[in-house]
Design a protein around this nucleic acid. Structure first.
Lengths: 167, 167
DNA sequence: TTAAACTTTCAAAAATAATTGAAACATATT
DNA sequence: AATATGTTTCAATTATTTTTGAAAGTTTAA
């Protein structure tokens, strides 16, 4: 396989993966493209490489910057804007994790708290509902904290210990 | 808030969450409904509660069973089929985690391996590509294993240790 | 202040994904 | 074997999401 083919394959694969999670395909592709580029890329080049419109490129770059995983750069002398992706993977994971927590997990926890604290009458049905949603609340909270700590303590002894556990 | 309202709120919320990840909204709603039901639910009831068609219910129940998080049950004397959800959350997490790994992470790893092992010419561009995709391969592999072990060793000392770390 | 270079916005169009409903398929009952 | 009860499939429809492209907006420079 030669370089151009490999690059394309990578970008398409990352795009498909993104769409399987909540991220749109083009957004993921742009991110992929930037991750494997060794220097800042202009909007023109992104449009050209991915065959997308200016509006599309602009909107998805905006989203990526909102997520904090793509940065705008200015080259001296050049009028155009250039873009780079966060390339440090640990840092990337932290940012994605934080963002998803903020956008999805926290609001969900709020609702779970609400619905799990209704006054349960004595029907088995209602008791089960309260019981199950309470467990869910605890579980989601635990998982959220865990993810948070895991990304935070990336390179330290705990991380290494966990690594060792994996043989 | 009264029971019916709380139940509905929970189902809608869980549905929205699902659609934000790769799972379709109705599928997530059915799962939510079953999780908070204290006894098996018939397809009729699911259709009624979620206001969806028979075909839709059937197809999404099939998917949920493929994921291994919903089971079919037969009630003695009844001709109809009933459905229940996996209610143990640790078990649920393990199954979802395994399934996503199989469906998404493993295929991605395969591609990453492929593209990261092209013969890099000496251009900085190609070197960076190989370097970055190799790092990505290692990272994804590490994350996949970690998730696997984490779910596997759920209740044991490692889990508890990690919990303690979180204060 | 005008023009040139570039970016953003957003309504309309296109693409994609989910849903319906009725026919085909199963299985149990009479 | 015929009927009744229930489930699955899938082509057509409907809903949702993404993309386009041109007008409006911004910034820099002459």
């Amino acid at each position: 396989m030669e370089f151009k083919e490999a690059k394309n394959k990578f970008v398409q694969t990352w795009g498909a993966l993104g769409s399987q999670w909540g991220i749109n395909k083009t957004m993921a592709k742009i991110h992929a493209l930037l991750m494997v580029s060794n220097e800042p890329v202009s909007m023109e080049d992104i449009m050209e490489e991915l065959q997308i419109s200016r509006g599309n490129a602009s909107m998805n770059l905006r989203s990526l910057m909102d997520w904090g995983i793509v940065y705008k750069e200015y080259k001296a002398g050049e009028r155009k804007e250039f873009f780079t992706a966060e390339k440090d993977l640990d840092e990337l994971a932290v940012k994605i994790s934080r963002e998803r927590s903020k956008r999805e997990i926290k609001p969900t926890l709020k609702i779970l708290k609400e619905v799990s604290t209704i006054e349960a009458k004595d029907s088995a049905e209602e008791k089960h509902f309260v019981d199950q949603t309470t467990k869910l609340y605890d579980f989601v909270l635990k998982a959220d904290n865990m993810l948070d700590k895991m990304t935070e303590f990336n390179d330290n002894w705990l991380g290494k210990l966990v690594m060792k556990m994996m043989k």
